[in-house]
């Protein structure tokens, strides 16, 4: 029989997992790009990869302390945003999306290539960079929490840091979006020529937005690798689309939407895959003639269906303003 209690417990773990926090932060960065500024960035996975590899390589190859590795990642992310933005932000919106999707793939291939194996670990990726972060942990060893949220000191430390960063990022974005800066950026989303005609340097604002959202993605990339190893295959285009899914689920031009969207996405994904795995063990899939590999993939189908229903019945996202949607052309 399928153990539903276990499925719920496992899904509960995702509620506050660092991965959920990482996706929330990456989606918040995308909200700044897409939801608030109207920049169609399809390369958020690239920004996350830069965070992951920037941190990993600085630590392993150059033996940087944690803060140094974080700064390297952020610096690289700003350079990446400039490389993407300088040629494309003056052009029509679609150019940015083409360039970002290609640039993110190029980055992933560079990290995968054998030529740079000594630094990037090639397809195997990197591991063994967590020491510095663990050393900063002020929490004494032991077991903390209860129920599905029982964890050791490192996991607790990681969750505290991850969610604190998410909260700070949310407050930052919230303050920016209610300021005159946010007004300019939202104006650009609506019609950049109109904003130009009012004397605002549109190019400059788009660049600032691209950098800010990109840095959020990069920091998300760093959080993402602290509970696991760096594997280049994680940074494929699907990652970007999962983040878009989260964003649309929560509401594109909202601050809390990406966070809640990420939580729902991960809890749902965990519940569905838990169910599929157990149902398969119980032989349910054999009845309809599905192989175990096929069964494994059904979780994405199910998640996809659930998300489609959400988008159909609540297209503005969970936190989006219904009134706003009435006017979407």
């Amino acid at each position: 029989m399928v153990d539903f209690w276990q499925i719920i417990q496992n899904a509960g773990v995702e509620l506050i997992s660092p991965t959920t926090a990482a996706y929330a932060l990456a989606a918040l960065g995308l909200a700044i790009h897409f939801g608030f500024t109207g920049l169609v960035n399809f390369g958020q996975a690239g920004f996350m990869a830069i965070g992951a590899y920037g941190y990993g390589i600085s630590t392993l190859t150059f033996h940087f302390p944690v803060w140094g590795a974080v700064l390297v990642g952020i610096g690289a992310s700003i350079v990446f945003a400039l490389i993407l933005g300088v040629p494309t932000l003056r052009l029509r919106a679609d150019y940015l999306s083409i360039v970002t999707i290609a640039a993110a793939e190029i980055l992933r291939l560079i990290f995968t290539t054998n030529t740079l194996e000594a630094v990037t670990g090639s397809a195997d990726g990197l591991s063994g960079y967590k020491g510095g972060f663990a050393d900063l942990n002020p929490i004494p060893d032991g077991t903390y929490g209860f129920g599905p949220w029982t964890m050791n000191a490192y996991d607790l430390w990681l969750r505290i840091v991850a969610w604190t960063i998410v909260i700070i990022a949310c407050l930052l974005a919230w303050q920016l979006m209610r300021s005159p800066w946010g007004r300019v950026v939202k104006g650009i989303r609506e019609d950049e020529d109109a904003v130009r005609a009012l004397g605002k340097n549109v190019y400059f604002y788009k660049m600032q937005s691209l950098i800010l959202g990109g840095v959020f993605g990069t920091i998300a990339g760093m959080i993402f690798i602290l509970p696991r190893a760096i594997v280049p295959a994680n940074y494929a285009t699907t990652l970007t689309f999962f983040i878009y899914t989260i964003l649309l689920l929560g509401g594109a031009a909202t601050i809390l939407g990406p966070v809640v969207g990420s939580i729902i996405f991960w809890v749902l994904l965990s519940a569905v895959s838990g169910f599929v795995a157990r149902a398969q063990a119980a032989g349910w899939f054999d009845l309809i003639g599905m192989s175990s590999v096929q069964a494994g993939q059904t979780r994405f189908i199910l998640v996809g269906i659930v998300l489609m229903l959400l988008v159909i019945f609540r297209p503005q996202g969970i936190f989006g303003n219904k009134k706003e949607l009435a006017f979407v052309k």
Partner: peptide, 28 residues
Amino acid sequence: KALSLLTVLDNMKLGAKGQKGENMFVAL
């Protein structure tokens, strides 16, 4: 070119020149 998903008031405010809060850091 009305900025559709901004309020009428925000449309107006966007027109003002020399706003300090339009600097990203001052905005915070």
